[in-house]
Design a protein around this nucleic acid. Structure first.
Lengths: 167, 167
DNA sequence: ATGAGTGCAAAGGCTTTGCATTAGG
DNA sequence: CCTAATGCAAAGCCTTTGCACTCAT
């Protein structure tokens, strides 16, 4: 479960939707102000790191990226929590040591995850529309059990390139 | 994130494969002995509670079911960890307060989960074979990103009957 | 007797919170 | 100026670990 620098780890798995930084910051600023919160330098930095990461990052990774020097751990967690509340960030629990955070799907588009069972790395992963449509269909099965479905989560678990190469 | 007693919460979502208790304990005993471990009273109890639960349970829930009185929390965690190692139990991280534990799929059959975003309750959920087959197909997409796929995880998130009734 | 299992209490590790200080509008 | 945001340190919470005791074979 070690972690290199974010830059090292970004790798080739690109978003189908690379997110325009310009628009991104405008949108985020708007959402924060709508909640009478300020788009402070640290929040800006956190958003920038997440956008650059292109995959869910842990707090240590976010701090290591250090687009804002000397950001306190507690502040980073607080920023992330606030950004989650205004719908800019989403928390991703992969079940490993740290929680991970990514930009909200309203900013990056709907996607799923590839989770490495060796190092805990998580990459984005897009599936064909037809598959996505099939998922919608399943909501009916859930409803039959009395559940009111809001969303879904689909992960492929396995080994990332770095881990199945060496291990 | 409150939790009632296990018996209260089992509800109607039944396994398609209700697991024969007789066979279950025989199999578990075999797997433990194969690792030169004993099928102690507390391990037996934990397995029984999980089988009765029919859905992933938290440690508090397992202790509350109390099929074995006065089982220490640390012992329960230790038992669960050992049972995971011999392939009898699987740990399910739902991303809420507690981890959850269920009998291994080799004992209950492959299934997915319905996760309540209000109370954290998790129920089992089976999908049509054709959907499951579609998932296999996706492994190819992941492989294209350099991932070696081992398994998958699919959850529907929403509100359980108890939560969308009251809230 | 001998090794496995258990209970109790303490330690760990990630995340959150309190509070005084700093900064932004 | 007035409120929001930050840093530091302490507290929380779930889970794991150390160690002496007990139990089963």
């Amino acid at each position: 479960m070690s972690e290199g620098t974010v830059d090292t780890m970004v790798g080739e798995a690109a978003h189908a939707d690379p997110v325009d930084l310009e628009d991104l910051h405008v949108t985020v600023g708007r959402r924060l102000r709508a909640a009478s919160m300020r788009y402070s330098r640290s929040r800006y930095s956190v958003v920038e790191v997440l956008a650059a990461g292109g995959r869910p990052l842990t707090l240590p990774e976010i701090l290591a990226a250090g687009h804002e020097q000397g950001l306190a751990q507690s502040s980073a967690y607080r920023n992330l929590g606030e950004l989650v509340e205004v719908g800019v960030v989403r928390r991703v629990e992969s079940g490993y040591d740290h929680s991970r955070f990514e930009l909200h799907e309203s900013l990056t588009g709907h996607h799923h995850h590839l989770v490495c069972i060796d190092c805990g790395r998580v990459d984005d992963f897009e599936v064909p529309d037809e598959f996505e449509a099939g998922i919608e269909g399943l909501a009916g099965v859930a409803r039959a059990q009395g559940f009111r479905v809001e969303s879904h989560r689909f992960d492929m678990l396995g080994r990332c390139p770095a881990c199945h190469g060496s291990a």
